[in-house]
């Protein structure tokens, strides 16, 4: 039972990750694919922060009389990752807008049809 509670976080995060992954590889709509990619990304963040958590630890801000803090290093890495993630999302969405301009659709199947008919 202790093992289950200790790993519950990781397992749910993996389920979320796989839901995002499934959206990316099985859905044809490009905007939905990017939403799936973002879900995957947020799940990775949750996994990292879970690894850095210490039971009973305080938020990593130096305070008088507090000795136990959560691990600040994953927080720093994920802060960087969140901002970079938004940059990649913006780039992906810009590509979607361009694809819509050139092909007139954002459905993967229709884009493939356009390519074959050329």
């Amino acid at each position: 039972m202790d093992f289950f509670i200790g790993h519950y976080n990781y397992w749910i995060v993996i389920i979320l990750m796989m839901l995002g992954f499934y959206t990316v590889i099985s859905k044809g709509n490009l905007v939905k694919k990017i939403v799936g990619l973002n879900i995957f990304q947020v799940s990775v963040f949750l996994l990292y922060i879970s690894i850095g958590t210490v039971t009973g630890g305080a938020a990593p801000i130096t305070t008088e009389g507090v000795v136990l803090y959560s691990n600040p290093l994953p927080h720093v890495l994920i802060l960087t990752a969140i901002v970079v993630g938004v940059a990649t999302t913006a780039l992906g969405l810009a590509l979607v807008v361009r694809i819509k301009e050139s092909y007139g659709t954002i459905e993967e199947d229709e884009i493939h049809e356009c390519d074959h008919s050329l």
Binding site: V31, I34, V35, N38, V42, F45, L46, I49, S50, G52, T53, V54, G57, A58, A59, P60, I61, Y69, S70, P74, H75, I78, L79, I82, V83, G85, V86, T89, A90, L93, V96, V97
Partner: peptide
């Protein structure tokens, strides 16, 4: 993230992840 003591990450996620990403997607 707040529950897991990562207050800075929670702040950034709420502002950048939930805010800007959503606006960019709506724009698209």
């Amino acid at each position: 993230f707040i529950g897991m003591d990562a207050v800075d990450v929670a702040f950034t996620e709420a502002a950048v992840g939930a805010g800007i990403s959503t606006v960019l997607m709506l724009g698209t």
